[in-house]
Design a protein around this nucleic acid. Structure first.
Length: 398
RNA sequence: CGGGGCGUAGCGCAGCCCGGUAGCGCGCCAGCUUCGGGAGCUGGAUGUCCGCGGUUCAAAUCCGCGCGCCCCGACCA
């Protein structure tokens, strides 16, 4: 990502997103937002700086360890940079939710998190500062909580499918977040830091840390192992936090009860990095179309040729007006430089405009992933691109 | 936290052992040529040698302390 001009390092595990990288992040965010909203979750934004008192209520101020970056304000009061938001969101809910009529609720945010990792590495893959979508569900009872958990699980499937990624949900440990049951969503990639086992015959899969034995527990024989990158984690929390923080509501019978919680994370910046790990070749990135920073890359081969430049700009303008996300390489560089940079940053479709083909009224449309090139007229290329990148026009309601 | 390594021009590095003029490649700037897979020639600019302290006539180089970063092992989206 550094080589492709997506990010720049500011300090260990802390990065600036450059324009190209930010566009990818925004793509992931958009998909996540749409699917969260579709699942009935509501977006809010909680503070990054959190007071120690809240963390003392759940005992995690003591438990969390050095990953929690702590500091004091001018009045010597203790704070931390939020690595997760169970305390803050539970504090909010206990103030606002008084009746079973207010439940269920699913609240989420997309926000910068900070975890003072022992050893940040692999760029965005394990940064100390990173973008995360975190959602929290509050239900009247166990059954409701289970249904929220399943709803979120389905939303996660949709999210990673829409991102164009090969992934697998696996059974996992709950770690410091705690809770009853949890699943991780793993993007499959050889370079992944995690190992998982999966059954060839059914959908059983587990993190190796969690897996018991080498055979499928449902009796399908030996499990196969894979490498993966954890991009999402969903937890059934139970009442661990609502009890500790005395968040109560009155149930149907007028009796006090604790909301049953779940929490659901997606590493937004890590998902972008994982997409690259899963989709690259020797020359560079092969962005899945839904995450690509741009959909089409127009490459004028020679910026000295007026004809090449005019045609390139015409194609660029026409596609832009149609709502296609187009990048044009208007640098005064040699062709080789432009081709190599284009392959490196990996925009899915390249339109190469050169004098020789233009003499025949043709330009090239190149598929970055397959390397397949077709020579077409400047009019045809617009139609082809429209078909490739734009969603099919919505059919008239009948 | 434990182990290893590095810090010198925008980037990558040499120089340090053996103290004395700070260098190479790429990039950058100007001009000319070139233009379908990382161009050629000519000319040019650039340095608190990570910081602080010490030794010395003299420190990038030797000594001490500090800071930062990278890589390998136990946690996490």
């Amino acid at each position: 990502m550094i080589r492709a001009g997506m990010i720049r390092k500011v300090a260990a595990g802390i990065y600036t997103y450059l324009p190209l990288g930010l566009r990818v992040i925004r793509k992931v965010e958009l998909i996540v937002r749409e699917e969260m909203n579709r699942a009935g979750a509501q977006e809010l934004l909680m503070p990054m700086v959190q007071p120690a008192e809240l963390w003392n209520e759940t005992g995690r101020w003591g438990e969390y360890g050095k990953e929690l970056l702590r500091f004091k304000d001018r009045g010597e009061r203790e704070f931390c940079l939020g690595p997760t938001h169970e305390e803050v969101v539970t504090d909010l809910v206990r103030a606002e939710v008084k009746s079973y009529r207010h439940l269920p609720q699913i609240l989420y945010q997309i926000q910068t998190k900070f975890r003072d990792e022992i050893r940040p590495r692999f760029g965005l893959m394990r940064g100390r500062e990173f973008l995360m979508k975190d959602a929290y569900s509050f239900d009247r009872d166990e059954e409701g909580a289970k249904s929220s958990y399943e709803k979120m699980g389905r939303a996660y499937h949709r999210i990673f499918e829409r991102c164009g990624l090969k992934f697998k949900p696996v059974e996992a440990e709950s770690g410091v977040i705690g809770g009853i049951f949890s699943q991780e969503f793993m993007v499959l990639a050889e370079t992944g830091e995690d190992s998982l086992v999966a059954c060839h015959a059914c959908d059983y899969a587990a993190n190796v840390e969690k897996a018991r034995g080498s055979d499928c527990p449902r009796g399908h024989g030996p499990l196969t192992t894979h490498r993966g990158i954890e991009v999402g984690h969903i937890f059934m929390l139970g009442t661990k936090y609502s009890q500790a923080m005395k968040a109560v509501f009155l149930d149907k019978n007028g009796k006090e009860a604790y909301p049953v919680m779940g929490c659901y994370g997606i590493g937004v910046s890590r998902t972008a990095a994982a997409a690259i790990e899963q989709n690259h070749d020797a020359k560079g990135i092969l962005w899945p179309l839904p995450l690509a920073p741009y959909q089409v890359h127009v490459i004028p081969v020679n910026d000295q040729s007026e004809r090449v430049m005019i045609t390139s700009e015409l194609i660029y303008g026409t596609l832009s007006n149609l709502g296609v996300e187009v990048l044009i390489d208007d640098r005064s560089e040699r062709p080789g430089v432009k081709f190599n940079d284009a392959d490196l940053i990996g925009i899915p479709y390249q339109i190469i405009v050169g004098e020789k083909n233009l003499a025949d009224g043709l330009v090239e449309l190149k598929d970055r992933r397959t390397g397949k090139v077709q020579k077409v007229t400047t009019e045809e290329v617009i139609d082809l691109v429209k078909k490739l990148v734009l969603p099919p026009a919505p059919r008239a309601e009948s």
